[in-house]
Design a binder for these strands. Structure first.
Lengths: 228, 228
DNA sequence: AAACGCATATTGTTCAACAATCTTTCTTGG
DNA sequence: CCAAGAAAGATTGTTGAACAATATGCGTTT
C-alpha cells in the first residue's frame, strides 16, 4: 500500500464537532503511524492530507505541531513533514532515556505495583504459549509502562509512551526484525522475583543489564540491515 | 505593570524573516513568562497579542501550540490561553520528575562531569558572597541541568528544562517566597564531595533527601500563602 | 437578590491569496 | 555527452478576512 492509497483510506471525520479538530487530526495520524500504515520516511503532503482528512491546511499544520512533540514526525523547514525514520542515534537516545527512568522507578518509585507487574507477566506467558506475537509485544510495553508509573509522575509516563511509540517506528523500519520480545518474558519474570524478595536495588541493576543487552541487539540488527 | 502594558512593551520583530515565525513567537513568549513579565494567570488574548507581536492570529496560534507542550501555558477550549499558575499538584509533579531523573543521573549517568559541577558551585559561592540572588538561582539551575546531562539523553534534558521553567513560575506565583537558593549551595557542595570520593550511590540518596526537603518546604510555603 | 435572555466579544476553523524556498527541467557552454 | 546554471513549477510559510461556535456581560424580569 503506497502513500497516496493511505490518504484515501483514512476515514473522514463524521462531521460532528471535535473538541479540537487539530487534536483529532494529530491522534488520527498518530494511530496511522503507530499501526504501520504510514511507514517511516513517508512524506505527509499538506495539500493531499488536508483534503484527505477534510480539514484545512491551517488546522492540519496545528496537528503537525502537536505530533512534532511526539517525536514521530520530522519537520524540515520549507521541505515538508515526514514520518520519522529512526536511526542508530535515535535508538541510543531511546535507551538512554529508558536506562535512566526505568531502573530509578524500580529502585525508588513510591508507587511500585508488583502485583500488577506479575499479572502482566501472566498475560505475556499466555500470549507466548498461544504464539501471539502482537499480544506479547503489547504485554511487554504494558510491563514497562507499569514500571514507569511507579514514579508517580504523569510527565515521565508521557515521555515513556512517546519513547515507546518511537520504538515501534524502529521495528516498522526494520521489517525483518527477529522476535525480540519472546525471550524478554523470562527476564521480566526474574525482575518481579527480585522485587517480591524486596531487592529493589538489585532489580534496578538487573534491568539495566537487560536494557544494555537489548540496545546492543537492536543496534546490531540495525547496522546489518543498513548494509543491504 | 499590567497585562496590556506588557503587550505594548514586547519588542516587535524587525521585519526580517525568522526561520519560523511561530517558533520566534513561542520563544519570545517563553522569555516574557520566564522573566516574570507575564505573571501566572494572565490571559493571552489572541487579538491583542497578535497585533502586539506583529503576526497573524494563525501564526500566534501555532506558537501557542508549541508553548502548550512546554507546560507553561494552559489552553482552555473556547476560553483562551493563560499563563499557567502552578498549584500544589504541579509542585508534587515537578518533584516526582526530579526525584526520579536526578538521582538516577548521579548513580548511573555515563557522562557525569564532576569538574563542571564543581566549577558551577564556585560561581554560586561567588554570587552568594556578592549577594546576587538571581545569579545564585541561575547557578542552581545550571547545577541541576548538568546533573541531568550526565544521562546522555537530550529528551531528559529537555524535560528537565521544561520542569525547571515551570518551577520558575511557582516562584513567580509566590512573590514573597523566601530565599530558597542560598542554603542549597552547601548541599550541592557536599554532593560534589561525595561524587569526588566515588560514592555515587550515596550521592544519589543524599540528593533524594535534599529534594524531599525542598518539596516539603515549597509545599509548606505554598499552602500558607494560599490561606491569605 | 437570583434567574433568564439577549447583545457582544472571543475563540475555533476555513478559505484564498501571496511570499519564500525548494525541486525539477531545460538550456547553455565546454 | 556531461556539468553548471537559469528558468519554471511545486510546496511550504504566512497573512487577512470571513463565519460558526462558545463564552461573557448586562439589563430585564420576577
Amino acid at each position: 500500500m503506497n502513500v497516496s492509497e493511505i490518504y484515501t483510506s483514512i476515514p473522514l471525520g463524521d462531521g460532528s464537532t471535535h473538541a479540537h479538530t487539530s487534536t483529532w487530526v494529530a491522534s488520527t495520524l498518530r494511530q496511522e503511524i503507530a499501526e504501520g500504515r504510514l511507514l517511516p520516511g513517508s512524506k505527509l503532503s499538506e495539500q493531499a492530507l488536508s483534503s484527505a482528512l477534510g480539514v484545512s491546511r491551517n488546522t492540519l499544520r496545528e496537528g503537525f505541531t502537536l505530533l512534532d512533540s511526539d517525536l514521530i514526525i520530522s519537520r524540515i523547514p520549507n521541505r515538508g513533514v515526514f514520518v520519522a525514520s529512526p536511526d542508530a542515534a535515535d535508538i541510543r537516545e531511546i535507551y538512554a532515556v529508558r536506562r535512566t527512568i526505568e531502573p530509578a522507578a524500580l529502585a525508588w518509585g513510591p508507587k511500585l505495583d508488583i502485583d500488577e507487574l506479575s499479572r502482566i507477566i501472566g498475560q505475556a506467558r499466555a500470549a507466548a504459549e498461544a504464539g501471539n506475537i502482537t499480544l506479547m509485544a503489547d504485554a511487554n510495553q504494558q510491563f514497562h509502562e507499569t514500571i514507569v508509573r511507579a514514579t508517580g509522575s504523569a510527565h515521565l509516563l508521557e515521555l515513556m509512551s512517546r519513547v515507546l511509540a518511537k520504538m515501534r517506528l524502529v521495528f516498522h523500519a526494520m521489517s525483518d526484525a527477529p522476535d525480540f520480545h519472546s525471550h524478554y518474558v523470562s527476564r521480566n519474570s526474574s525482575l518481579v522475583d527480585l522485587l517480591s524478595a524486596g531487592q529493589r536495588m538489585k532489580a534496578a541493576d538487573t534491568l539495566q543489564d537487560y536494557l544494555n543487552t537489548a540496545e546492543a541487539e537492536l543496534l546490531d540488527h540495525y547496522e546489518s540491515s543498513q548494509l543491504r
